[in-house]
Design a protein around this nucleic acid. Structure first.
Lengths: 157, 157
DNA sequence: TCCAAATAGATGCATATGCATCGGATCACA
DNA sequence: TGTGATCCGATGCATATGCATCTATTTGGA
């Protein structure tokens, strides 16, 4: 309701609040997307992040925390913590790297494999749904490319 | 390095890991964007979320937790917790609504006003930078529109 | 008027995320 | 072959987020 809104705002604040902040807009979109995928995955007991980590453990020849963080473009500490619940729940095991004691090599347990397979099915449902409703090669691809290029130019992460 | 990647992946998992998951792609973009804006705001001691909340407190005639959550399209509990540090640090005060004791009406302190003004300057720097580097009306606008329409159709939030 | 339904805000619980930092291990080069 | 620079993973600290749930209040009818 526009009656909620005050009148005396600087142009900058108005811009920030009217959905024109790139950062806030993407964050909102991200929250929504996560809720959508998480809802689809909830019955399998996984979140989209956890599914992705399981997938990376399977997809990498020698999965380590650092490598997963690199591929997911997130902080190493965040990846480290994200993996913890999966280890706790017996979906992932970790063993010291034979030749580099700094590293822990991760692996899926049989249960982890099963959960990943199940989760991938649920994921596909959400993915196909979004795909069907988004303009093909529409905003997302363009936008992601822009963000990545921008981040690279500014050495973000 | 492609030598990291294993070969035997189902098509679905390959799709998920190669950056084609809408959810993961947006999440990555969001993380980057937040880091960019947060870095610009760090010297003012604010995060982009906190700046937005201060702005909404100023921008709404009768700001309450619920109203801020609605406008920011986030969970009420997340908004509630996000406001807490700002209250603790003396940037926001809250007082019971005169006619509805369920509500707390928020307000900026003088210090809150000052921080908001300072933060808005820093924000503008980041915003202008991103703006200059993104294709005008390029991917973002299209994409956000798609996400919102999709979320509306699926009653997400 | 009175009670069921709806609303506001807070909290318990759990994950998600980044920064700084620490201790251990490895590497590169003098 | 040392040893300083790097790298790896873990942790402390702090915010960010959502869901379920609880209490207090308000509201909308019967």
């Amino acid at each position: 309701m526009s009656t909620d809104l005050s009148e005396d705002m600087t142009p900058e604040l108005a811009e920030l609040l009217t959905g024109n902040c790139y950062c806030l807009a993407v964050r909102r979109a991200s929250r929504r997307m996560v809720r959508l995928y998480d809802a689809a995955l909830a019955e399998r007991g996984l979140t989209i992040s956890q599914l992705a980590m399981l997938a990376w453990v399977k997809g990498l020849r020698t999965p380590t925390v650092q490598k997963i963080a690199d591929y997911m473009e997130m902080d190493q500490s965040a990846a480290s913590r994200g993996i913890k619940p999966l280890e706790r729940d017996g979906l992932i095991t970790s063993a010291p790297h034979p030749r580099d004691k700094r590293k822990s090599v991760l692996a899926l347990t049989d249960e982890g494999e099963a959960w990943l397979a199940e989760g991938a099915q649920a994921w596909a449902t959400a993915q196909r749904q979004v795909e069907a409703e988004m303009t093909p090669m529409g905003g997302l691809a363009t936008f992601i490319g822009e963000v990545n290029a921008l981040a690279a130019r500014n050495r973000i992460e």
